[in-house]
Amino acid sequence: MTAALVTTAVRSSGQLIVRRLWTDRSGRIGCVLVGLVLLVGLAAAFGLLPYDPIAQSAARLRPPSAAHWFGTDQFGRDIAARTFGGIFASLRVSVLAVAIAAVVGGFLGILAGFAGGLLDAIIGRLTDILFAFPAILLALALVAALGHGWTNTAIAISVVYVPIFVRVARGPVLAVRESDYVQAARALGFSPARILFRHILPNVSAPLGVQTALALSWGILTESALSFLGLGAQPPDPSLGLMVNDARNLLTEAWWTLAFPAAAIVVAVVGLNLLADGLRGASR
């Protein structure tokens, strides 16, 4: 019976957050933009685009038209197909990187806050060491050490974001573990596992959810930056950062080669940030 009541309470809380998110202007706009990004990314992933993102043709540097919505690049490749393919590539790297960082960082943060003492000090010092390195330089060094490939890029980005999730998870745990209901649960002889899953984790899930949305936007920016510098996706694979890099010398004669991939980055990042703002307000 108790388990059923807990399940019902969690479901009701989730429905309330979704309802608040949709009534919030920022959250609603963020949901629409993120949904659009996911839609075109999935279309590229399942090969539903009218053109092959890497197929070259004689139609070089054609402006946007009915045949090529975003125009073509210097190799005759359809920019719309490459932009949508680049969105999928960025999402793939960002989702994997954030998933790894959230699991590892969230676990370490909860463990440090709940256990305290020497373990908390060790995890805190390791986190401080990672924070001492500039994020993009640490990602560059890790990618250079691991080698090219989207999985290695995701791993490098996840290492950069692990300390952020440690801090986000540790703070609420420190506040909750000294609360009256947690102290009462300890006095009643509840096991640490029960206290952790029943009382600690529900208070950590909301800030971790907000941080996940923010980290996804940062992940897209970081993946695009690494690709721009030549350490992410490699030609001829579609990548937003690569497309921006290739279009630098074509801006005066073919503005569309830069405008659309850059706009895709902006839409994805703004949408995820607005979604994070909406989640922050809905979870209060």
Rank of each mutant, 00 (worst) to 15 (best):
V18I: 08
T212E: 00
A44E: 15
L140Q: 02
N249S: 12
G124S: 10
Q56R: 09
V160M: 04
I129W: 04
A99P: 01
L275I: 02
G232F: 09
L221S: 00
R194P: 01
L174C: 10
V6C: 00
G241A: 07
F228V: 09
D73G: 08
A3D: 12
Y181K: 11
I155W: 02
D52E: 08
P238S: 14
V34S: 14
S65D: 06
S283C: 07
V176S: 02
L16T: 04
V166I: 15
L231I: 13
T153Q: 09
A213C: 02
D120N: 13
G41C: 09
F131E: 10
A145H: 03
W256P: 04
A58C: 04
R60C: 10
Y161W: 13
I54V: 15
I29M: 01
G171I: 11
S283T: 14
P238Q: 14
I87E: 09
I29N: 01
G219H: 05
T252D: 07
L201I: 07
I157M: 06
Q183W: 00
A215E: 03
A43W: 02
G105Y: 04
G14E: 13
T127G: 13
I136K: 09
R194Y: 11
I136Q: 02
V204K: 07
G113M: 05
L226V: 12
G47C: 13
L208V: 10
W69L: 14
F84Y: 13
G209W: 05
A59I: 08
V34K: 14
I17F: 05
R20L: 01
I164P: 00
F84C: 12
L130F: 08
R167K: 15
L208Y: 04
G71T: 15
S57I: 05
L49D: 07
L42I: 09
I29W: 03
L214A: 05
F228I: 07
V37Y: 01
G281L: 13
Q234R: 15
L214P: 06
I122L: 15
R186N: 02
F84K: 07
D246P: 03
I157D: 09
L119W: 04
G278M: 00
S239C: 07
T257I: 01
I87L: 14
L208S: 02
L146M: 05
A175N: 08
L118K: 03
W22L: 12
A112F: 05
F70Y: 08
V40H: 09
P53E: 14
V244G: 08
W255Q: 14
A213I: 03
Q74A: 15
L242K: 05
L49T: 10
V6H: 13
V162Y: 03
A112L: 06
S26C: 03
A144K: 09
T222P: 08
T212P: 01
A81K: 01
L118W: 13
W218L: 13
A276Q: 08
S224M: 07
R170T: 03
I155Q: 01
L231G: 10
L240K: 08
A115K: 12
G85H: 12
F84Q: 08
F133I: 13
V104G: 02
F46R: 11
T83N: 04
G105N: 05
D277Y: 03
D128N: 13
V32F: 12
F260S: 04
I164E: 04
F131K: 01
A262L: 13
L96D: 09
A102R: 04
M1K: 02
P235I: 12
T2F: 00
L140H: 02
P192W: 07
I87D: 09
P207M: 10
S179Y: 10
V166K: 01
